[in-house]
Simulated scan of single mutants.
Amino acid sequence: MPQLPKAFWAFHDQYYKPYRRYAHVHLGDEHAAGELVHQVFMHLALNWAHLMEEANPAASAWALLKESVAQELDLQGRQHAMTETAVLQHVTRSVLESSRQEFAVIESALGLYPAIARLPERQFDVMVLRYVLGFSTDTTARIMGVTDATVRSHCHLARRKIARDLDIPLGADCDDEE
C-alpha cells in the first residue's frame, strides 16, 4: 500500500476512539468493536482519494461506520447491545461517584436507555454520542459530519420524546455542556 497522506492520519487520530466507543456500545464487545473500526479505517485508507471527493467526508465515513455496525449485527442475527452496554457503563461510573444512590441509578438507567433505543436513527445517534459516550455538541457534530445546530435540534427533539415516553418533566436543554 502506498504511504497514506497526513490528512488520513489526522482523520484517524480524530475519529478512531469515538468510532470505537460507538461500535462498542452497539456490539457489546470491545474486541469486536476494535476489529470492526479497524476494518472501517482500512476501507477509508484504500478509498481515501474518493472519500476526499465527497461533499462531506466526515458524514460519509460516519455512514460507513453505521452501515458496518448494522451489517455485523445482522451477521450475528441480533439487535444492538446499547441498552446493556450503556447501562453497565453508566452504573459503573455512577456507583463509583456515589454508592448511596446505586439502586436509583440502576432503576433510572434501565428506563432511560430503552427509551433512547426507541428514538429515530439520527436522534438516537446524537443521544448516544452526547449522553452515553459523553461527547460535547461540537465533537458530536464533527463525528456525525453535521452542524452544531443539527445536533442541538436532534437532541432537543429526542429529549422531548424521551420525557414524553417516560412521563417526566423536560430538563435543561442540550446546549448545556456538562
Rank of each mutant, 00 (worst) to 15 (best):
T139P: 01
Q3S: 12
A45F: 00
S136H: 05
Q76K: 05
Y16A: 12
F124V: 02
S136K: 07
L4A: 15
V146P: 10
E121N: 01
V105W: 09
L170S: 06
I116F: 04
L36A: 02
A117F: 02
D74V: 11
P120E: 13
S108V: 05
R21F: 03
A117V: 01
M52G: 02
A86Y: 09
P2G: 11
E177M: 13
R122K: 14
L64C: 01
M144A: 11
A86R: 06
E67S: 07
E84K: 09
T92W: 03
V132H: 09
H156G: 10
E30H: 03
A141T: 09
Q123A: 11
L157P: 05
E177S: 13
A45N: 00
H38T: 12
S98Q: 04
Q71Y: 08
E54S: 07
A109Q: 06
N47V: 00
L51M: 12
V40R: 01
D125Q: 12
F124H: 15
E102H: 08
L110Y: 03
H80G: 15
R100W: 05
G28N: 02
H50T: 07
L4E: 12
A63V: 08
L170F: 11
E107R: 12
A115N: 12
V91H: 06
L88G: 03
P57K: 00
E84W: 03
G77N: 06
V69F: 04
L51A: 05
